[in-house]
């Protein structure tokens, strides 16, 4: 497997008032294409910061971040936005759906940034809804859906533009156990059947067990690693 995500000597500092905090310390990481990686660690360990750097939401203070063959730490803001649209699908803990848009319109959002015609967008959205088992809920607004269903819509939105990488920040953190299992099953299926590379941040060991590789982040450094054969 070739490395889809490559981080070398990455440092991330935040300035808050007069204080400068180094959140990540000269971190190195490689994630091969097709891997399902779980990043675990206590609150404030830097795992979400790491995820933000991998997904192009943030830039390192120093070091190299190469994802899908692009030095994303060197891209301009607008090129980075376009890169995200093309390469990254996002799943958040609190779903982050647009409350005024129906499920299908939420899912369609990333496709608005493509040159796909309306009819094709509609077909793709229908397929994505089918994939996440919500074909009958296309017209529902987020408030009319359960937490698990909202997360499925978020996953469909993350997948709709066929991204290279799926990043998930505590995707089951706001769900009950049954819904969480459904979502994790779905992510694992996407990884195994469609070869999607997934990087997931989680506190939950049970969630991490669905991944093919687990990394622990503590105080801004990767401290332990384990490879899972299968769950």
């Amino acid at each position: 497997m070739t490395a889809l995500v490559y981080l070398h000597n990455v440092v991330k500092r935040y300035v808050r008032g007069r204080q400068t905090m180094e959140v990540l310390h000269q971190l190195d990481l490689e994630v091969p294409a097709g891997q399902f990686l779980a990043l675990m660690g206590p609150s404030g360990s830097g795992k979400t910061t790491l995820l933000n750097l991998i997904s192009g939401l943030d830039r390192p203070t120093s070091g190299e971040v190469t994802v899908a063959g692009e030095r994303i730490d060197q891209l301009s803001s607008s090129r980075l936005a376009k890169w995200r649209a093309r390469h990254v699908g996002f799943v958040f803990q609190f779903y982050n759906l647009m409350p005024m848009l129906s499920a299908e319109r939420n899912i369609e959002l990333p496709l608005l940034l493509t040159s796909l015609p309306g009819a094709q967008r509609k077909r793709n959205v229908a397929a994505a809804l089918e994939l996440v088992g919500l074909a009958t809920h296309a017209k529902h607004k987020p408030a009319e859906l359960s937490g698990g269903q909202q997360q499925r819509v978020a996953i469909a939105r993350a997948l709709i533009a066929d991204p290279t990488l799926l990043v998930c920040d505590e995707p089951t953190g706001d769900l009950d156990r049954a819904s969480a299992s459904d979502i994790l099953d779905l992510l694992q299926r996407l990884n195994r059947e469609q070869g999607k590379t997934i990087v997931m941040v989680t506190h939950d060991q049970k969630a991490a067990d669905y991944a093919s590789r687990i990394l622990h982040v503590d105080k801004g450094q990767l401290v332990a690693a384990s490879m899972q054969s299968a769950v």
Binding site: L57, A81, K82, R84, N96, M98, L109, P110
Partner: peptide
């Protein structure tokens, strides 16, 4: 604010 941030996350540019 949150919705605009999500749109930017999805790939909408600052100017967009």
């Amino acid at each position: 604010i949150h919705e605009f941030a999500v749109m930017k996350t999805l790939g909408f540019t600052d100017a967009g």
